[in-house]
Design a protein around this nucleic acid. Sequence first.
DNA 1: GTAATGATCTCT
DNA 2: GAGATCATTACC
Length: 201
Amino acid sequence: MTRAFYARPAVEVARDLLGAILRHGTASARIVEVEAYLGENDAAAHSARGLTPRTQVLFGPPGHAYVYLIYGMHHCLNIAVERTGNAGCVLLRAVEPIADVTLPTNGPGRLTRALGITLEHYGVDLTRGSLTVCTPETVCAPERPLTFEIGVSPRIGIKKADGLPLRFFIKGNRYVSGLGSQRLAARAAADDQDLAGNVVR
DNA sequence: GTAATGATCTCT
DNA sequence: GAGATCATTACC
């Protein structure tokens, strides 16, 4: 993805990231669920209270990683978007494994653990280096559809600015996180059932 | 310096 | 429904 791809409103970038490929080293996975955070006018965004040491990358140029530790034990991966000075970002919430991924990837904390993303990736440039996002056509995954329906819902787990439809996900994809998906995924692993179409909310 | 908080996950 | 566990932030 180019710098220009990220230099757009958070909602646009979020929707366009669905289906794209997240790569870290040899590991790769398809992005199936994201959330948009709008910057200083979004009470739920970390950048809502202005520039702090942690959030400075959000105010910097687009296309850089914003990684932070949540609840003392989970890392979350975001991508800074919009032009320099605008603190919008996109939270990656779930991915579908393609290669060299063994751990579960449905959920923000799980996907960072599965792909080995930590605080050391804070601020790295996603347009160059080992942690990148690219278009699905550049990866050989012919069994996965390039077109899909996009589902929309309120963001998960936040208390401020709740209810805004800023969460986007691939409808029917079994790797989407959210209500019930953990039990469904566990049952799928146990029964080897195909859950496609049953995770839409 | 101290205390509250949290864009989560796992188990009960 | 509660506990784990700590960086960041706000407030004294």
